[in-house]
Write a protein that binds this DNA or RNA. Structure first.
Lengths: 276, 276
DNA sequence: TCCAGTGATACCCCTGCGGTATCGATCGGC
DNA sequence: GCCGATCGATACCGCAGGGGTATCACTGGA
């Protein structure tokens, strides 16, 4: 199976519409129709159920969509990492959630920079749920993830730190005077809404946020309250109060990298971080 | 990057010879040379250093070989699993090392078969080190692996059982009368040699074996002795003695599956196994 | 019944992959 | 130092197949 065919199929499967998929791919619709037919013949299975009203995935189609996305990411990763190894671009890209584990991140970077043979590290900050993608398709080499929020599936990981969570809220909020809280106490605080994997927000009452840095600003402004790992307390302004939520799940910060990574720099950075 | 280019590159990188690689790929040598040149132009980096005497990998070339193999496995896996989802072939393939964890394997299969909605499970036995490959390229859906011997990198896993190791040796062997042993005691017993990832055997004194079932037979014949997990004791003939090696590392049997697996059957089987 | 929307088909063009023949460079043997 | 063997690169050719435009066939809804 060629990557071109796979890209075409994934586009149609995601758009559920040949015309839109063709536009996205920058080709006309007829060659796309033919390519899908040919793919179906080659695989020996109907992948899409088409009527003139809608395009639906069949069972095998759903399998190919999931596996195909992973395969395309792997191919992209191969190309990106090769290109980077050739010298253009940074030597190592580390990705972390904006506003999360800031202190730990700084320590890791400092410790690695002091290492003999350390290379230039590019730090990329992003919203939650984006890191896995970047790591998978080769735009990043290492990531800081937070269990149980982020999926570490398919990566090698090393635990770095573990911490409790607190409710962060504007000074003056009724709950801000408590010494500690339980999850039940915060049940009716409208929590912020994070975007799903597709970039859309679930319905609900809380404000829409894209990363922890944004959220912090909203809390400062008195427009939000949120349960976050204790370390978010670091460098907080006076107008925000953090109250420990004693029965919230503990959050473990891990460093993650692609399992077949043969890079000396990745190994050094991981070893360095694990020593902290 | 197209799959074809990647396959060509991997072939040349592995053979370190354009002619042999072309033969293996079933094409003539000139188109192969051109394809590699074009790939190098597109990636913007020299991947192979050629002289008329040898072909050597450059740094970026080594990166592309490692990443490219993984990517090709992912593409193959996508195609295989899609084809299988389409109905031809078994619904679920489980791979295990021949002769290892036999009892546990039987229990897992029985338990799953009793599950409502259980599908047909194909059991594939293979030598050590082959399972990861099969799981990665889609020829298998689930594997029984043994830490710390097998690499679980890149898979989701669930621990099933943990056990010590014993020295298995023919009755009558001088060490067979001991109640227990330490690693130091077995240091000069010639242990069997397992094939490396490339299928060749390291140099040494012990017999060459391909799987645990073979090894068991050799032990029975009085031609070998080996340190193996205690469970290998199961169903052993009288002429083989197992002496616990108290300071050998404990072996954990885990069930492993590809992380993006969306299959109901895999999830059921894993849940079933974890309950044991 | 007609029209809008959607995927499939017909047909054409041309890129680009694969093949054969041959070149040019390098190394070993005498 | 020359010759022959070996190996990758180049030149050139034929054609499969991917992409484009025009158009058809089918389905729902007004």
């Amino acid at each position: 199976m060629e990557t071109r065919e796979l890209r075409y199929f994934v586009a149609v499967a995601e758009e559920r519409h040949f015309g839109r998929a063709a536009e996205r791919l920058g080709i006309a619709q007829p060659p796309l129709s033919r390519a899908i037919q040919q793919l179906e013949r080659r695989v020996g299975a109907r992948l899409l159920e088409r009527t003139s009203r809608e395009v639906r995935l069949t069972g095998p189609g759903a399998v190919l969509l999931a596996e195909g996305r992973a395969a395309l990411d792997a191919v992209d990763a191969a190309e990106r990492r090769t290109r980077r190894a050739a010298g253009s671009g940074p030597d190592l890209v580390l990705v972390a959630k904006a506003g999360a584990s800031e202190e730990l991140l700084a320590k890791v970077l400092d410790a690695y920079a002091a290492e003999p043979g350390a290379v230039e590290v590019d730090v990329q900050l992003c919203g939650p749920g984006q890191q896995e993608r970047l790591l998978r398709d080769g735009r990043a080499d290492v990531a800081l993830l937070h269990r149980p929020f982020d999926s570490t599936a398919g990566f090698d990981t090393e635990d770095l730190a573990s911490e409790g969570q607190s409710l962060f809220l504007p000074a003056g909020h009724p709950l801000s005077t408590h010494a500690q809280l339980r999850l039940a106490d915060v049940a009716d605080v409208p929590l912020p809404r994070w975007p799903g994997p597709d970039g859309t927000y679930p319905n609900g009452a809380g404000p829409q946020v894209r990363d922890t840095a944004q959220l912090r600003q909203l809390v400062s402004l008195g427009r939000a309250a949120a349960v976050l790992p204790d370390s978010a307390r670091h460098g907080l302004a006076d107008d925000v109060v953090a109250v420990p939520v004693v029965d919230a799940p503990r959050v473990t910060t891990v460093i993650a990298w692609p399992p077949h990574s043969r890079s000396r720099a990745v190994a050094d950075l991981v070893r360095c971080a694990a020593r902290l």
